[in-house]
C-alpha cells in the first residue's frame, strides 16, 4: 500500500525565499562597493557589523518565539534589512547606534509583528526613522566623497573610530564631516540663495546630482535593473517612484529653476534610486496588485518630493516609504484586477 504524500500540484519550481533574497543581496553588492569607494571603509564596516548583529538578534528572537532557527535565519530577509540600514547610516556612525538601530528593526519592526511576511512596515526604514528622530546629531554626521576628503581614514582607523570614538591625531568628527548635497541645498535655499548661486563652484555638487552620490545612484540603478531582468522585482514600483519624482520636480523646475532643483538632481541625489529599487520594492510591505504597485510607487515619489522641498528633512525616502506602507492594504483592496471571464464588470 502506498501512502500518498499530498495532493496536486506535485511539481514545483525550484525558487525559494532564500534564492529571492540572495538575488537582492547580490544586486546590492555594487552599491556597497561604490559607496565604500566613495565614502570610505566606514560603509563596509557598517554593513558587515549590522549584518552580524542582525543575524544574532534574529536568531535570538526566533529562539524566543520557538521558531525553527536555521530555515528562518537562512531565508536572508534579515540580511537585506541590515544591509539597507548599514548603507543608510553615516559611514562613521558609532557602533551603539548601529546596535540600537538594527535591534529595533529586527525586534520591534519585524518580530513583534509576527516575523517574516507579517510586518506592515519596512523594518530598515522604521529603524532609520527612529534613529533620525532620536539621534539627529549622529545621524547627520556625513562625510564628503573621497576626492574632497583631505583626511581619508584607513580601515584600522575607521574601525577604531566606530568602536571607540578615538580619532587619529588632531582630527575631530566635526572637522571631518560635511553636509550632504541635499542638506546643503535645503539650508542654503532657506537663506534665500538661488540654485545657481548654491551649486556654482561648489565641489559638493557633481554633474547633475550630488558629487559621489551620482555614482552610488548609478550602482543602485544597475543592480535594480538586474533584479527586474531576473524577475525578482516587477518594474512597476521603481518606474512609478522615479516617474512621479521626475514629473513633480520637472513641473516645479520649469516654473522656477532657481528655487527648485532639477529632476536629474532629485533622482541622482540621496537615496532616491536605492529607495526606488530596493526599499520600496520590499514585497512584504508594498502593494501587490499591478495597478496598486503603480499607485504605491507614485505615492512614495510624491511624498519624497514634498518632504524634500517643503518639509523638515533634506531626504525623505524613509518617511515616504513608511507612509505608503500604511496605505498598501487599502490600495490593494481597491485595485483588484479584472478577473478572467467577468467582462468589464470587475
Amino acid at each position: 500500500m502506498l501512502t500518498p504524500k499530498h495532493s496536486s500540484p506535485y511539481k514545483y519550481a525550484s525558487n525559494s525565499v532564500t534564492s529571492v533574497m540572495m538575488w537582492v543581496v547580490l544586486a546590492l553588492l555594487p552599491v556597497i562597493g561604490v559607496q565604500t569607494y566613495i565614502f570610505g571603509w566606514g560603509v563596509v564596516v557598517n554593513v558587515l557589523f549590522t549584518v552580524a548583529v542582525a543575524l544574532g538578534v534574529e536568531g535570538l528572537m526566533l529562539a524566543m518565539r520557538k521558531r525553527p532557527i536555521f530555515p528562518f535565519l537562512s531565508d536572508g530577509s534579515v540580511v537585506i534589512t541590515a544591509i539597507l540600514l548599514g548603507l543608510a547610516l553615516p559611514p562613521l556612525a558609532p557602533w551603539w547606534l548601529m546596535v540600537v538601530g538594527i535591534s529595533f528593526a529586527v525586534i520591534f519592526a519585524k518580530h513583534l509583528y509576527g516575523g517574516l511576511g507579517y510586518n506592515p512596515f519596512n523594518p530598515a526604514m522604521v529603524a532609520y526613522a527612529m534613529l533620525l528622530v532620536s539621534f539627529p546629531l549622529e545621524m547627520t554626521m556625513w562625510f564628503p566623497p573621497h576626492e574632497l576628503n583631505n583626511n581619508p581614514l584607513n580601515l584600522i582607523e575607521t574601525i577604531t573610530v566606530i568602536f571607540t570614538g578615538q580619532l587619529p591625531g588632531q582630527l575631530s568628527l566635526d572637522s571631518l564631516s560635511m553636509a550632504t548635497p541635499l542638506d546643503s541645498l535645503k539650508t542654503e535655499l532657506g537663506l534665500d540663495k538661488s540654485i545657481s548661486q548654491i551649486t556654482t563652484g561648489n565641489p559638493l555638487f557633481g554633474w547633475f546630482g550630488g558629487a559621489g552620490w551620482e555614482w552610488v545612484s548609478f550602482a543602485a540603478l544597475a543592480g535594480g535593473c538586474g533584479l527586474i531582468y531576473k524577475k525578482i522585482i516587477s518594474w512597476h514600483i521603481p518606474i512609478a517612484v522615479i516617474g512621479s519624482i521626475t514629473l513633480l520636480s520637472g513641473v516645479f523646475y520649469l516654473i522656477d529653476a532657481e528655487q527648485y532643483a532639477s529632476p536629474l538632481f532629485h533622482i541622482f541625489s540621496g537615496a532616491t534610486l536605492l529607495g526606488a529599487f530596493f526599499i520600496a520594492t520590499d514585497p512584504v510591505t508594498a502593494s501587490t496588485t499591478p495597478v496598486g504597485r503603480l499607485i504605491y510607487g507614485a505615492g512614495i515619489g510624491l511624498l519624497t518630493y514634498v518632504i524634500r522641498t517643503w518639509g523638515g528633512y533634506p531626504d525623505a525616502i524613509a518617511f515616504a516609504v513608511l507612509l505608503m506602507n500604511i496605505s498598501a492594504p487599502t490600495i490593494d483592496y481597491y485595485t483588484r484586477p479584472r478577473i478572467f471571464g467577468y467582462g468589464d464588470k470587475k
Binding site: N15, P283, V284, T288, I339
Partner: peptide, 27 residues
C-alpha cells in the same frame, strides 16, 4: 518529484498573482 521544502511565511511577492491564468489574487 521531491517532497516540498518547509512551508515558509508568505512574503507577498505576488509571483502567484502573475502566474494565475484567471487573474485572481492567490495570496
Amino acid at each position: 518529484l521531491p517532497e516540498k521544502n518547509m512551508e515558509m511565511p508568505c512574503i507577498r511577492c505576488g509571483a502567484c498573482a502573475d502566474a494565475c491564468p484567471i487573474k485572481l489574487l492567490p495570496q
